[in-house]
Amino acid sequence: MRKYFRVWLQLSKCAIGSYLSNRLDAVTYLIGKLVRFAFFFLFLWTIFNYTDRLASYGRYEALFFFLTFNLIDVFAQAFLRGSYMLKIDIRTGWFDHAIAKPVNTLFWSLARLTDILDILFLLPIIGLLVYVGMKLPIMITLANIVLYLLLLATGLVIVVALHIITIALTVLVFESENFIWLYRESMTIGRLPPEIYSVGIRFVFTYLMPIIIIIAYPVKALLGRLTAIGFLTALIFMLVFFFGALAFWRISLKHYSSASS
């Protein structure tokens, strides 16, 4: 554990060093993200100038969904960025080196790149979450907050599992880095309260691609709208996804065929 923390620290140090030599790209990417974030925030805010309710949620509740989406999305972007590098790493042979080293290949593939700027981006998001949280029109108890954090953790585990599945697919099929984009695109439905979607869509994104479990369940728990069954579902999904993804990863690594030299 200590070893992995030290490896991670050195990797992050390297990532910062790399960033410094690509300053402009790093900064403009962050600005791009901020712009998109700001526009969507403005969009949601503006909508509530013309309506009181969005699928039974008020302004601050809707914003809380949006911010939670960003929290999880940016968290994954910051700490699991390695999965986006995998295809390049396979081509350049970095991945081969990683397999041959006494370091867990899964850890390496997920965390070999850490986006420091995304970690910085997390701060204003958390700040806004607290602000919007205080503006919520209902009483938030400590129990609600604990439940929120608990389900947030569950959601993050599922996100990690989804990343494991995508990198396993990349190892297997090589060309398939697009699965990560499929996940990214699916995530965007979590920006808004799930009740705006039809029952069919909600089913798909709860039980097939569990975006709603990842993003909406924590918020609902905070708002006191999550049933015990919902809580249980999240727990079961976390376990199934996590262990399923691990098993799939092991299979894929066994069938890894490296890039021709």
């Binding site: 697009n178 984009w181 499929l182 695109e185 965007t188 979607y197 039809s198």
Partner: peptide, 20 residues
Amino acid sequence: AHRLGELGEMLVLILMWAAI
């Protein structure tokens, strides 16, 4: 994949307006 993502985003918008 790119296109599907775009269409998805568009549908989300439509559904949101439908809700409003």
